[in-house]
Amino acid sequence: MKLASAIVALVVLLAGALWWVGQMAPESPIEVENARVRLVPGGGPMAGYMEIRNHSDNVIRLVGAASPAFGNVMIHRTIVRDGRARMQHQSDGVRIVPGDSAVFKPRDLHLMLMQPRRELEVGDQVEIVLQFEDIAPAEWPVAFTVVPVTSQ
């Protein structure tokens, strides 16, 4: 009987501890999925695509990005109007409201990755640091996978 009480007490204590630890571990405020760089040969700029989910309670803003693999990274959007295509620098960044996501995809938002510093190959991992406003920490390093230029 004493043993049974001890076991029950132990189980309750463990459950409580688990719950407490669960409460302690904060949910990541953002999540980045399907991060990829489409390989373009010839030393020209490449495009980075991904989906950023905002799990936080705040409106956040992606304001910039940097990478050791590229000399310069900009946030661009492709605009097609009257059969004419051009790229637009997103100088105000990209705003993501709570519970929403920003999708960077072909013919739309993309990271413009300029001046590649080394020869990349399909399958390589490239680190790109995403810079946010209204979120801590402000800098989020993300591993992007290099995919073939023919992938969509």
């Binding site: 373009v40 020209g44 495009a47 492709t78 097609v80 790229m87 072909p106 993309h110 023919t150 992938s151």
Partner: peptide, 13 residues
Amino acid sequence: THCPDICPTTLAR
């Protein structure tokens, strides 16, 4: 060629 988004997308398609 310095067009990383729509040019490769269209040419690949």
